[in-house]
Amino acid sequence: MAEFTVVLPQYGMGMQDGEIVKWLKGPGDRVAEGENLVEVEAAKTTVEVPSPVSGTVLRIIAEEGETVDVRAPIMVIETE
């Protein structure tokens, strides 16, 4: 088993950061690749960030209401 760090993706050239609006998955939850993990507000639009891997959520790094930079770690998933 390995740990995979999920980072905030960039959804457009001008995007520099995003606010964590709502976590859809939490520690202990199993996730499939492509399943939505979190809602993020960036440039006045809300997008859902899909999981890049399948596994189990180990921990959330960025809390709801927190603004994080693009490519900053937001979650850790344990992969199979």
Score class of each variant (00 low, 15 high):
residue 20 I to Y: 04
residue 46 T to F: 13
residue 55 G to Y: 13
residue 74 I to Q: 04
residue 46 T to Q: 13
residue 9 P to Y: 07
residue 79 T to V: 11
residue 68 V to Y: 05
residue 70 V to G: 02
residue 77 I to C: 13
residue 69 D to V: 12
residue 24 L to N: 07
residue 44 K to E: 07
residue 63 E to I: 11
residue 56 T to A: 12
residue 32 A to N: 14
residue 51 S to A: 15
residue 67 T to K: 13
residue 55 G to K: 12
residue 27 P to H: 00
residue 14 G to K: 13
residue 76 V to A: 00
residue 72 A to C: 11
residue 45 T to L: 14
residue 13 M to R: 14
residue 78 E to S: 08
residue 70 V to E: 00
residue 26 G to M: 07
residue 78 E to K: 01
residue 78 E to T: 03
residue 20 I to N: 02
residue 72 A to T: 10
residue 32 A to R: 15
residue 41 E to Q: 06
residue 77 I to R: 02
residue 44 K to A: 01
residue 36 N to E: 11
residue 43 A to C: 13
residue 4 F to W: 04
residue 17 D to N: 14
residue 77 I to D: 11
residue 16 Q to R: 07
residue 55 G to I: 10
residue 47 V to F: 05
residue 37 L to D: 09
residue 30 R to I: 01
residue 75 M to F: 04
residue 74 I to E: 10
residue 19 E to K: 06
residue 17 D to C: 07
residue 26 G to K: 15
residue 53 V to Y: 12
residue 14 G to F: 10
residue 10 Q to P: 07
residue 60 I to M: 05
residue 76 V to F: 03
residue 9 P to C: 10
residue 58 L to H: 04
residue 69 D to F: 05
residue 65 G to H: 00
residue 50 P to A: 14
residue 20 I to H: 00
residue 78 E to M: 05
residue 64 E to G: 01
residue 55 G to E: 11
residue 9 P to D: 08
residue 45 T to I: 15
residue 48 E to A: 08
residue 2 A to E: 15
residue 66 E to L: 05
residue 30 R to M: 10
residue 42 A to F: 03
residue 55 G to W: 04
residue 24 L to H: 04
residue 28 G to K: 04
residue 25 K to F: 07
residue 64 E to T: 03
residue 62 A to M: 12
residue 67 T to F: 07
residue 11 Y to H: 07
residue 24 L to I: 09
residue 41 E to W: 00
residue 13 M to F: 12
residue 52 P to K: 09
residue 68 V to K: 15
residue 15 M to A: 13
residue 38 V to L: 08
residue 73 P to F: 12
residue 54 S to Q: 11
residue 27 P to C: 06
residue 68 V to C: 07
residue 19 E to L: 00
residue 64 E to H: 02
residue 77 I to F: 10
residue 6 V to M: 08
residue 79 T to L: 10
residue 75 M to Q: 03
residue 50 P to M: 07
residue 57 V to R: 07
residue 2 A to V: 06
residue 44 K to I: 10
residue 43 A to Y: 08
